[in-house]
Design a protein around this nucleic acid. Structure first.
Lengths: 345, 345
DNA sequence: TTGAAAGCGCTAACAC
DNA sequence: GTGTTAGCGCTTTCAA
């Protein structure tokens, strides 16, 4: 089953290959030639080979998308955003799922390099070491939803850093990044909880939550209790263990902010297991809105981030790179109050 | 930023390009040459261009993945399965999301053709017309999770057709398909509900549910009530409208089988809105297990299908095609009893 | 064991 | 306006 090539079309139309190429890419040609070529091409069901074109042009179309886990509804929506933008630009998308593991991420970057994919949207898991090779090769990368963790533990003022006004250079060295405004999302949630009278508020975090936790500390101010800031690994089990451990070791806490939907899930499950009633015994705010948040009883109060937009904007940036110097973007979050928070008991 | 080519390596190592190619693809070479080439390649951080290779070999690596919606956890898991298999084979994956729309599906198939992707795993939305062009070009296609709908409405015996023993030829004309055993899943669920005393059982279906609904009818036998079999379009809103409409028009029904997780969501929401208590007033079984099924109160009884395996197996089939003649596969489903079903009121 | 050279499908530079 | 041709990076004969 041989593929129809430009040569076949040229022969059948009685013209040279260059003419066919021109006609198909909108170049100049006499109306009659154009028509004949078009007719023949349609008749032979000719499709130009992206392989040949890309090789020739030294410019591979296509954008790569690297994220931790397609199973997470957050990343699913983000991916849909990227796909939507890519489709409207007619670009194919190569997807890789890293499992949150820098090593796999690194391998997948290698794979993209091999495929000559030079535009990448990523929800990064690794740090500068992981992304260095990609950048050195001249890949255009845009981070979405996350940015590589700071190597340090010190709380840093992200907003200022984002504006590039001070602080030492960020690991990503100016890579455009599309983020939800975690700082403001967390602040709003914490203030809401404070307003309900809560004082002992816990943060249940996961990998890559440096920004959120720093915002949490800042919003809580002197109320912050280090024991109430816990981190879980990436897995569902780890999240459950962390939630359960937290609730058992500190029965005095009255509210918890779960830093992601898996952590929220874990919190709901752990609370149920320990017979903590939400919101009577424990108020819960979950980061990220997911469909099931509304199905829970009580329905969960959440910080919603525009996941699909995150992906769409990132894809836009990566496609426009070169044309316009891409800038980082901060998208708003929204506190959606449902039923999982009550006054301090 | 020019990319390192095989020529650069050859020059630097003082050998011909052919030798480099041979060494890198494990061909014969003298030990010392091999070592020198390898060293130089590593030093220059050389990565063979898949573009060049594929063009030359007329065989594009890479597999295409087409599915309705990455936002649906079912397809998310399926995609993870495909990605896992592809990664272990070192193959890149091109993903397209069709929104359940045959036209978009068709366009995406065109895009894959253009990219010379000749191996595709798909959760199909379109029918024979949509997939004809792909097959005619010699694409290897494997369907996963769904198969194109029969053009007819008559209930057909799928299992026998699957075995190719009788019935008129299926639209997909022998395309390997990896499916969950819906027939048995639905049968088990219906029998479970019958065992609880239910007689007026509804089926809440979506697009592509021909198999499930036929199994439903068969399992219910003479009890089937056509008014209780309703179909919703693909959207969340449509699902909600269908569920709500069903519950209002037929308050006498005592149990419902939701044919997918979005439909299950809709059922839970609609029931809550109408003050139908689950399971006291209404028993609910949902097709497909999702994390939030356990978080609902009551936790939902579900028919679980091995979504990730579906994807993995499909990818396996598509990669092995040519080596071994691929056969269709039926994977088991499982009824997971939680708390959303009770005895007939 | 190795190198030279052809050629995969395409576009762009150049000649007519 | 149109044809000829070189060459993108690679693998694979074919000779040496």
């Amino acid at each position: 089953m041989k593929r129809t090539t430009i040569k076949d079309v040229a022969e059948a139309a009685g013209v040279g290959v260059a003419t066919v190429s021109r006609v198909l890419s909108g170049g100049s040609a006499s109306p009659e030639t154009r028509e004949r070529v078009l007719a023949v091409a349609a008749h032979l069901d000719y499709r130009p080979s992206a392989l040949g074109r890309n090789l020739r042009q030294q410019r591979t179309g296509g954008i790569g998308l690297l994220l931790p886990d397609l199973t997470d509804p957050l990343y699913g929506r983000l991916a849909e955003g990227v796909l939507a933008c890519a489709r409207s630009a007619g670009e194919p998308v190569l997807v890789g799922s890293t499992g949150g593991d820098p090593e796999q991420e690194s391998e997948l970057i290698g794979m993209l390099l091999e495929q000559s994919v030079d535009k990448v949207v990523a929800v990064p898991s690794g740090d500068a070491d992981t992304w260095g090779p990609a950048l050195r090769t001249g890949m255009t990368v845009v981070f979405a939803g996350e940015r590589p963790d700071e190597p340090t533990e010190e709380p840093v003022d992200d907003l200022l850093l984002l504006d590039g006004l001070r602080g030492r250079p960020r690991v990503e060295g100016g890579i455009p990044t599309v983020l939800a405004d975690d700082r403001s999302g967390v602040r709003t949630a914490v203030q809401y909880l404070k307003g309900l009278g809560h004082r002992r508020i816990a943060y249940l975090g996961g990998p890559g939550h440096a920004r959120r936790v720093s915002a949490f500390r800042e919003a809580l101010g002197p109320l912050v209790d280090d024991e109430l800031v816990v981190f879980a690994g990436g897995s569902r089990d780890a999240a459950y263990a962390a939630a359960s451990g937290l609730f058992q070791s500190r029965p005095d806490l009255t509210a918890v902010l779960a830093g992601g939907n898996q952590l929220g899930e874990a919190a709901v499950l752990a609370a149920r297991e320990l017979d903590l009633r939400i919101p009577r015994d424990l108020s819960l705010v979950m980061y990220d809105d997911v469909p099931w948040a509304e199905l829970c009883s009580p329905p969960l109060t959440v910080i919603a981030q525009p996941a699909q937009d995150l992906g769409y904007r990132a894809a836009e940036l990566v496609l426009r790179a070169g044309i316009r110097r891409p800038r980082s973007v901060l998208l708003p979050t929204e506190l959606i109050v449902r039923g999982s928070c009550g006054p301090r008991r």
